[in-house]
Simulated scan of single mutants.
Amino acid sequence: MARLRRGRSGRADRLRHGGRRRPDARARGLRLRLLRRRRTAQGVQSWPLFVAACVVIFATELLGGGDVDPTWVLLTLAAPLPAYSLRPGALHAPGGLPLRIAAMVVFGGAAALALGLGGDAAAYLVAGGLLGHALWDARHHRIDRVVVRPYAEFCLVLDVVVAALVVIVTLNG
C-alpha cells in the first residue's frame, strides 16, 4: 500500500492556511463517512417501520375479518412511545424525539377522533391529517435529520395523493 504524502509542514504551510495547520484529509474523510453512516442508519430504521405498519394493516384486515380496525392496532402499538420519550437524555436526542412524540399524539388523536365521528366529517378530518402529515414530512425533508430524504419525499407524496383521493371519493360518494 502506497504511503500518502502529507505535503509541506511548517511556517510556509501555516501561512498558506491562515496560521493554522493544513486540515487533515483523513479526518475530513472520516467525518464524511460517519455522516453517511448516520444517514444510512436513519434510512434503515425508517423503511422497515413503514413495511411493518403495512403488514400490521393487511394482517389486521385479513385476520380480523373486518371486526378490528387497523387504526386501533397501530395506535395500541404506538402507545408506549410517549413513555419512551420521558427517559433521561431524550429531551436532547438528535431529531427532536419529544416533538415527534407530540406529533404522534396529535396525529393519533385525530385518527381516533375520525374513527369516532364517522361519515363525511371523519373523511375530511383524515384528509386534513394527511395534509398536516405531508407538511411534517416536508419539514423532515428540509432539515434532513430525522429520516433520509427519499423516505420523506415518498411519504410526502403518498400523504398528498391519499388525501386528495379521500376528498374526491367523499365528494363523489
Rank of each mutant, 00 (worst) to 15 (best):
E153S: 15
L74S: 02
A134F: 10
L115H: 13
A27H: 10
A93S: 15
L99H: 11
G132A: 13
L115I: 06
L91H: 09
A163I: 10
G43T: 02
S9T: 14
A59W: 05
V147Q: 12
L131C: 14
V157W: 06
V106T: 03
R100N: 15
S9G: 11
G116S: 08
W72E: 10
V169E: 14
V166M: 05
A114N: 04
V160S: 04
R8V: 12
Q45P: 00
N172R: 15
L81T: 15
V166D: 07
I57T: 14
A134C: 12
G129C: 01
S9D: 13
V105G: 02
V162Q: 10
G173H: 08
A110P: 06
L135Q: 10
N172W: 13
V68D: 00
R28K: 10
H133Y: 12
R38Y: 04
L131P: 01
L125W: 10
C155D: 09
D67Q: 11
R22C: 07
A59L: 14
A53D: 08
G29C: 01
A53S: 14
L34P: 00
A103Q: 08
W136Q: 08
W72H: 12
A103E: 05
G119D: 15
V166G: 06
H141N: 00
L34C: 06
R142K: 09
V148G: 10
C155M: 15
L34F: 11
V162H: 11
P94R: 03
P82Q: 07
P80S: 02
D144Q: 15
A78V: 10
A41K: 00
R149K: 15
N172G: 07
R21D: 15
L91T: 08
L15V: 10
E153R: 14
A2L: 12
G119L: 05
T40R: 15
A83M: 14
A78E: 08
L158R: 11
R28P: 00
G29W: 09
S9N: 08
L62G: 07
G10F: 09
V55C: 12
D13H: 04
A111M: 09
L30C: 00
A53Q: 09
V169Q: 12
T60M: 01
I101K: 01
F50Y: 13
A110M: 13
V106D: 00
G129L: 00
S9W: 06
G19E: 06
G128P: 03
A79P: 08
S9H: 11
R38F: 08
H141K: 01
L165N: 02
V146K: 00
R145M: 13
L86K: 04
R33F: 09
I101G: 04
I168Y: 13
H17V: 02
G132C: 05
Y124M: 04
I101R: 01
L156K: 10
L34I: 02
A112D: 07
A114L: 04
T76A: 15
G116M: 06
R22M: 06
T40G: 11
P98H: 03
V166S: 05
R11N: 10
A79D: 05
M1Q: 12
T170M: 07
A114S: 14
V73H: 02
P94K: 01
A12F: 06
V51G: 11
